[in-house]
């Protein structure tokens, strides 16, 4: 073309960003697993050191390295986040599709469940389920997974209802395309972007709720280096001026959450078919 506008290629930068974000999150997760031993190692000769002298993030009252603890905690959070988000998303997919396809009564029941779960404050529900399931890892995972599906289920229900009425699907049926083929060719490709984006956007919620429940003492046990545990323990030392105990783990958590949220948003943009015009 004649004109040579140097404009940045949005798709390219989005893909680069996605790759970088995934890489960072993967690295944090892996590093956390490796450092899990270091994170619980106590060294009473080096207690309460500020960042600098006591490693990058300082040490706590038992001489544990805060950098290792933060990474281990974040890694644990991300793993729990992925697990719970995946379980939640699968529940959402099943519930949403069932509501849209199994007739009016099933729809009423499932929609009622959606409203019910959405009506109870998340944190309360997570706490209740977690206690009922005996706290710890299993409790937290059950709590978060069972409380985060409704909004995605609602989206999927709406999408499936709309797809079932879509003229192009009706026409395909008329042309003798089988039900199964119709689902595979027309339904899944339309649902997949919604589903994946919903899945990724569930991560930040799941991570935050896991950390808050643990912080409140209804989640993971205090031996585990979880962000929630670190934060709640550091509360009693904050007043004595040991700010690094809460600042770095808290900041790391916020950054991870933001990263996931932006990741989901960018992915949505990329998968939107109208993005060819961007």
């Amino acid at each position: 073309m004649k004109h040579d506008r140097k404009e940045k290629n949005r798709r390219k930068s989005t893909i680069l960003f996605l790759a970088a974000a995934v890489l960072i999150l993967a690295a944090v997760t892996a590093a956390g697993i490796i450092l899990e031993g270091t994170a619980t190692e106590t060294d009473f000769s080096r207690t309460n050191l500020a960042p600098g002298t006591g490693g990058l993030f300082g040490t706590d009252w038992m001489g544990r390295d805060m950098f290792a603890r933060t990474l281990a905690g974040l890694s644990l959070s991300i793993r729990i986040g992925i697990l719970t988000a995946a379980v939640s998303a699968v529940i959402a997919l099943l519930a949403g599709t069932a509501a849209a396809t199994l007739g009016r009564r099933a729809d009423a029941v499932i929609s009622w469940c959606i409203d019910l779960v959405m009506g109870i404050p998340h944190i309360l529900l997570v706490m209740l389920i977690s206690i009922a399931c005996g706290r710890g890892f299993a409790g937290v995972v059950a709590g978060v997974a069972l409380s985060h599906w409704p909004s995605l289920a609602r989206v999927i229900r709406g999408e499936v209802i709309q797809l079932r009425q879509a003229p192009y699907i009706l026409v395909a049926e008329k042309l003798g395309v089988s039900k199964f083929q119709n689902v595979r060719r027309h339904m899944i490709p339309h649902l997949l972007p919604q589903f994946l984006t919903g899945l990724i956007l569930l991560f930040p919620h799941a991570i935050l709720h896991e950390a808050s429940v643990t912080f409140l003492g209804f989640g993971l046990s205090s031996e585990q280096p979880a962000i929630g545990v670190i934060l709640s323990e550091s509360m009693q030392y904050l007043t004595t001026g040991r700010w690094w105990l809460a600042l770095f783990p808290g900041l790391a958590l916020v950054l991870a959450v933001i990263l996931f949220a932006v990741l989901g948003e960018r992915l949505r943009q990329l998968m939107d078919p109208s993005s060819v015009h961007e």
């Binding site: 003229p167 192009y168 699907i169 026409v171 490709p189």
Partner: peptide
């Protein structure tokens, strides 16, 4: 309205 927007026309 009667062609799937996500499918290539040959499909």
């Amino acid at each position: 309205t009667v062609v799937d927007p996500l499918l290539r026309l040959k499909d």
